[in-house]
Simulated assay, not measured.
Amino acid sequence: MVMSKKQGRTFFKKQSSDKFSKKHEMISETSTISKEHEVYLKKVKSTKRRIVITRILILVIFVGLWQIAASLKWIDPFLTSSPTRVIKSLVSLYEDGSLFKHIGITCYETILGFSLGTILGGLIAVILWSCPLVAKILDPYIVVLNALPKVALAPIIIFWIGNGMPAIIVIALLISVVTTIISVLTGFNEIDKEKIMLMNTFRASKTQILRYLIFPYSIPIFISALKINVGLSWVGVIMGEFLVAKNGLGFLIVYGGQVAQLDMVMMSIVILSIIAFVMYEMVAFVENRLVKDKN
């Protein structure tokens, strides 16, 4: 049966009309999805904004109540200090030129101990993963080192290395390195064995397995270790400064307690809290960037 010209035109018009209607439906569906996505994004932004505002309000209310309680003698200002007395102590140290010196020394010790502990712990975890037999042999010793209070090792380290900054950095390193080894090695061992077997089937070397499988899948583990090490490094440095330092925020805390200047103690604690928070946020920023790149 041969189609006439008129029937052909009608057929092509119908086909084009159907295509147009389908395109129109697809566009309308896309626009609907986009609107829903836009509403979702607005909701996420609104939630984040509320969280930030609530955090700020909690801090403002806490500081305000602290100041009011100290001013009205609900609490003893000598024992608990107050925001105004903390600010006066801060200004006093700034005027004599020692404030940034103490902050800089503590930050330098913390960053160095944090970096060395994380890098060394990661390298040891890679070596133990590459040598399963060695990892099984050393497993109980690593557990004991992790359970052992590092404060007990501090006097020994000071006698070995001597008073001063190197001993403080080593104490911070020891506190963070064992935790890094355990967390990173655990993350390595939790990766799907079938994927490793698949790469072994293709005769991939251990270096290739580490580079293309272990490391990419272990990024969240590394970030988690970094977040933990931020706090542990501060603990190690302050503990070391308590014992041997003549400068730093830890020294100010000990000195302020000895001479009954609790304003100085509270000021040092506030500064430590702010710097530790900034370091944690820097790690969180790196995490967000890595997650975006991975996506």
Score class of each variant (00 low, 15 high):
residue 1 M to I: 11
residue 2 V to C: 03
residue 3 M to A: 13
residue 5 K to Q: 06
residue 6 K to E: 10
residue 7 Q to D: 14
residue 9 R to C: 00
residue 11 F to T: 10
residue 14 K to S: 14
residue 14 K to P: 01
residue 19 K to E: 12
residue 21 S to K: 15
residue 23 K to G: 10
residue 25 E to G: 10
residue 27 I to D: 14
residue 28 S to G: 09
residue 31 S to G: 04
residue 36 E to G: 07
residue 37 H to A: 00
residue 39 V to P: 00
residue 45 K to F: 15
residue 49 R to H: 11
residue 55 R to S: 15
residue 65 L to W: 14
residue 65 L to S: 07
residue 65 L to E: 06
residue 66 W to C: 02
residue 69 A to V: 00
residue 70 A to V: 03
residue 71 S to D: 03
residue 72 L to P: 00
residue 72 L to C: 00
residue 81 S to I: 09
residue 82 S to N: 08
residue 86 V to T: 14
residue 87 I to K: 00
residue 87 I to C: 00
residue 89 S to K: 11
residue 89 S to A: 15
residue 90 L to F: 14
residue 92 S to K: 13
residue 93 L to F: 12
residue 96 D to P: 05
residue 100 F to K: 04
residue 104 G to S: 15
residue 106 T to E: 06
residue 106 T to L: 06
residue 109 E to V: 06
residue 111 I to Y: 07
residue 113 G to K: 07
residue 120 L to R: 01
residue 122 G to P: 02
residue 126 V to T: 11
residue 126 V to L: 11
residue 129 W to H: 10
residue 131 C to F: 13
residue 132 P to G: 08
residue 134 V to W: 09
residue 135 A to L: 01
residue 140 P to N: 11
residue 155 P to Y: 03
residue 157 I to K: 04
residue 160 W to N: 05
residue 171 I to A: 07
residue 171 I to C: 08
residue 172 A to T: 13
residue 172 A to I: 11
residue 173 L to P: 09
residue 173 L to Y: 14
residue 176 S to I: 08
residue 188 F to S: 02
residue 192 D to Y: 10
residue 201 T to L: 10
residue 203 R to V: 08
residue 208 Q to V: 03
residue 211 R to C: 11
residue 212 Y to V: 09
residue 220 P to F: 08
residue 226 L to S: 12
residue 231 G to F: 06
residue 236 G to I: 12
residue 249 L to W: 07
residue 252 L to Y: 02
residue 259 V to P: 06
residue 264 M to G: 04
residue 265 V to F: 00
residue 270 V to G: 01
residue 272 L to S: 08
residue 273 S to R: 04
residue 281 E to M: 05
residue 283 V to S: 05
residue 288 N to M: 02
